[in-house]
Design a protein around this nucleic acid. Sequence first.
RNA 1: CGGGGCGUAGCACAGCCUGGUAGUGCGCUCGGUUUGGGACCGAGAGGUCGGAGGUUCGAAUCCUCUCGCCCCGACCA
Length: 618
Amino acid sequence: MRWSQNFIPTLREDPADAEVISHKLLLRAGLIRQLGSGIYSYLPMAQRIALKIMQILREEMNRIGGQEFYLPALHPAEIWKESGRWDAIGADMFRLKDRKDADMCLGMTHEEIFTAIARHELRSYKQLPQVWYQIQVKFRDEPRPKSGLMRLRTFIMKDAYSFDVDAAGLDRSFEDQREAYKRIFGRCGIQFAIVEASSGAMGGSASNEFVARTDAGEDLIATCSACGYAANLEKATSRLGLIKDLVGPDAPEEFPTPGVRTIEDLIKFPGGAKAENQIKTLVYMVTVQRMKMELGSRDDHILETPAIVLLRGDDHLQETKLLDALVRMGSFAIGVRPARAEEIRALFGANAGSLGAVKINRSNELIQKIRREIAEFPNTSDYILDTVDLIVVADQTLRGRRNMTTGANKDDHHLRGVDVERDIHIDRWADLRGVNAGESCPRCESGTLDVYKAMEIGHIFKLGTKYSESMGATVLTPDGKPTPIVMGSYGIGVERIITAAIEQNHDENGIIWPKSISPFDCIVTVTNMKDAALRETGDKAYKDLQRAGLDVLLDDRDERAGVKFKDADLIGIPYRITIGKKVADGVVELFDRKTKTSEEVKLSEIVSRVQSLALAGL
RNA sequence: CGGGGCGUAGCACAGCCUGGUAGUGCGCUCGGUUUGGGACCGAGAGGUCGGAGGUUCGAAUCCUCUCGCCCCGACCA
């Protein structure tokens, strides 16, 4: 490619809207331009990069037996209604109507569509396993698109789906994908980690998240340097020392605590308690989706129901863990939010600073009172009357604790001497607390946890039979019985790879592309186009390198050398061949973008030299 | 959804408070000098001041509405 005839609109200054480094460099290097919030046009250089990444994705998917499809991005609503996700997903899905006023949507993922093919065409266990994938655009109406290509509303994803006859088969397919992902990110030059992650409210028995460490990331990862344990904070646990409580009274004692509103207040209050001896009582509203699945009829309800969450005073709630715990209870929970002050008031008759879970009894008149009071709320769903159920979920660090202090459900009063298991009816014990950096590793004896920021670049799920059951995708087993296909789902965001590659490979001068995904293998920079000898030498080097099978960019613009060097650094091509004064001696300069070192190479040897460098791994 | 900020030339910004002929730098065009790390001199082109309505003799500037974008938080199966 000749730069003079190509569109590489580099910018000298940082665009005002860009905050993170990859966003700035994507714009400055002439890779992308914004069309709308979370919507970007990919210019020719970016397209070259994307194509290289997609080629790696294809090679590695094909290597594990994957077959490439191309499915529609436009979906009729019916298929999403079948799986229940039309209602479950909400505002994240782009929805539209066709001319006949039928509901449609733009696909945000393709479990339903692939499953629809599987259920029609896969009949026998003999046809399994199957590994199907595509590289295709996805649409998600993100609440907050941000950071250039990091969080988009339309983006390219490689999504793969595995279909197995049983869990053991899924385990093998999952492992294949895991290995493929390791090769893919490795080949793309990304430093990544595999972490335990929440499977989310949509179910699935296991999932691994692939993350790239970068301060621009939105995920927090806890990791142990001693044993390699790594987990998303949504899932991470730690090993805590046991606390020996003193023997308390036979029953809780109420005492006045005027003005005490927070854990901190109660620590300082005379006769109060240390944070680790307090019970923190939080009230959450849980969004529940109820699906009655009867033959020939479906009845979906979305409703909200309150839950009480108990933690140690010095811990904080990890909301995803709460949601996961509620899902494990079989509650069909799809979301949680903190209760509003007026909701808390109505439920407890006390304000947030004075709450406690002692003697919450579902069958007494308190529930009647709650029901009456909730019914008076404006904007409260009618459904709530049928489902008021003050579920109490407690963090397992509270197990066996006694002589604790907590709110008395009366403003300005607390209870001391509370024995958690004796005095509180707890519906569910769960791991709910968020871990903190510096706590002990849950896996090994010696390590402590470090917490760093990272961005999600891939996610693999064991879906199980969620979609095959709801959509009726079954095969016959050897003994002739229908069994739901056991599925897995595996995604990689192409733009996320681009973003992570830049975040991890740049310096003050610009991008430093990993060789494998660089838009060009090398750039030939002619320092002065007015010098015929340099011009001709550059042209010959360009053609020779091309003939050797390399992707070459020839900077033949009528610009000063300094401008060309700056631009070459900015767009991040791994090797620069500078055609300058020493051409008279048959010598050119070979500059390594990453190490910033240069060597003089004889013109006659430049092709073989660049070839060996460009092909030598990362 | 809550909070904050910003829309003026291709890009980055000033002008707005205190209404009176729309500016600066970079980029772009032309001429000249330069030519290895974002050159210099000279001459130019380029703007419905996001949109609509209002106040006023007069609005980029004041008021109302609206659209869009960015950031923080919430949220993100």
